[in-house]
Nucleic acid binder design. Structure first.
Length: 419
DNA sequence: TCTGGGGTCCTAGGACCC
DNA sequence: TCTGGGGTCCTAGGACCC
């Protein structure tokens, strides 16, 4: 048995917890650069504000309906997520943290009352964190997902075990709303005459495997209460690490792009060190705007590193080389990024024959830099290639987030004030 | 004017081996 | 004139998730 616990309107709910005036008010959270809608409170959903839509399309609606708009505040959401997950952990079931706002529990236990448990989960998370969650319980993860969707609509936990209940739900579920089926697969399934989850559950296994893929076959089996996906209690370590941003203002000059790429490398390399890994492969990519009428250009360059490393200066040097290969002048760049991949563990220290610093020195140096930045709670130390504009604030690469709420739970300077 | 960021898995086809 | 059978590995691109 699996339980899926899903936080309702997570980012919007985080904003509401620390700001009582937002109660019962429509709240919207925006992406980087305050571009797209990435979260909506239930009141905002009622106003038909769409997920992923650019916010400028709602300019008038915002004024008219007094909608509260926030820039994303991932320091806050990340910390609230940890609190929710810790609360779920207190129930002592094996747990898989599936995303920032979702977790599966493995309830391999015949003698518990699932509905009571589900209610307890919901109650405790709300009491300890202020976050409202939807709980769905079923024999497979795919069905637990469907159950939690129903729970979200009904406002109370849903246990999906009874065969008749399941059939009823499947008949009322469009294939696109199944976990693992997106818009492309939906079209292909429609062509095969499969419109609802019920149709898919009854479909011939051979046909599904031949016409679609093994993944869809697994989903089909899961709809029939045959588990194909386990609870991944110890998440496998990452296979790639990506840091990318859209720029608030378009960038044309090579040096500016170089600063951006360098700072992305620095962030990615730090994530890499946190995983105790070294990268063998580096990709950089740059692109102009997808929406603008300016000439379009997008390119990427990949480099196999001679020796695996997590040493930021080394990675920056390679990234700069890569950038030179793909940069073309007179284009207006809107987005860039860095991907590190093909990792080896930091325990296998391959020495660089030609380096003046040995690997231990490099690792110690980066460790100190990471520690200082962690303690300072900001980038106190950084590399010159990243650009030395004051606090990066005036720089072109800094993304704008004009309406960010305080880091109430992670910064002493931004604690909630009560008057 | 203004349109996110970060991941994983699967498959087909090419290159190569004996 | 007629040209096999069996396998692995790699990669790009497509699809999905939140």
């Amino acid at each position: 048995m699996f339980a899926l616990i899903d936080c309702n309107n997570f980012y919007a709910s985080c904003e509401k917890i620390f700001n009582p005036k937002l109660k019962n008010k429509p709240v919207v959270v925006l992406s980087n650069n305050d571009g797209c809608v990435i979260a909506r409170s239930k009141e905002a959903k009622k106003l038909k504000i769409k997920m992923g839509a650019p916010i400028f399309e709602y300019k008038e609606l915002i004024k008219e309906k007094n909608i509260y708009i926030y820039s994303s505040n991932f320091a806050l959401y990340g910390d609230m997520s940890i609190r929710v997950m810790k609360t779920l952990e207190s129930f002592l079931y094996p747990m898989e943290i599936y995303s920032i706002d979702e977790a599966f529990l493995d309830l391999d236990d015949q003698n518990i009352n699932y509905l009571t448990l589900a209610k307890d989960l919901k109650k405790r998370v709300y009491k300890w964190t202020g976050i409202d969650v939807s709980v769905g319980i079923a024999r497979t993860k795919t069905l637990a997902k469907l159950a939690s969707e129903m729970a979200k609509k009904q406002g109370c936990p849903v246990i999906l075990i009874d065969e008749k209940d399941i059939q009823k739900v499947l008949k009322n579920t469009d294939v696109e709303d199944i976990w693992g089926v997106g818009s492309r697969l939906k079209k292909r399934l429609y062509r095969l005459g499969i419109y609802t989850a019920y149709d898919l559950a009854l479909a011939e296994s051979e046909l599904i495997k031949k016409q679609l893929s093994i993944s869809v076959l697994k989903t089909t089996l899961e709809l029939n209460q045959i588990p194909c996906f386990k609870c991944e209690k110890n998440p496998p370590s990452k296979k790639s690490i990506c840091t990318s941003r859209s720029f608030a203002k378009k960038i044309e000059i090579f040096e500016d792009l170089e600063k951006a790429i360098s700072s992305f490398v620095a962030i990615a390399a730090q994530k890499l060190r946190r995983q105790k890994m070294q990268a063998n492969f580096l990709t950089i990519f740059i692109s102009t705007s997808f929406h603008s009428k300016d000439p379009f250009y997008s390119n990427s360059c990949q480099i196999t590193l001679p020796i695996a490393t997590s040493f930021t200066p080394k990675l920056i040097a390679y990234a700069k080389k890569a950038l030179k290969k793909v940069y073309k002048s007179s284009y207006l760049y809107k987005k860039a990024g860095v991907i590190l991949s093909d990792f080896t563990s930091i325990d296998y220290l391959q020495k660089d024959l030609f380096s003046k610093l040995d690997e231990k020195n490099k690792n110690d140096l980066m460790k100190i830099i990471d520690q200082i930045n962690y303690k300072a709670n900001k980038k106190a130390l950084f590399f010159a290639s990243e650009g030395i504009e004051k606090g990066l604030k005036k720089s072109k690469i800094k993304s704008s987030s004009k309406m960010r709420s305080n880091k109430y739970t992670t910064s002493f300077d931004e604690l909630l004030e009560v008057k």
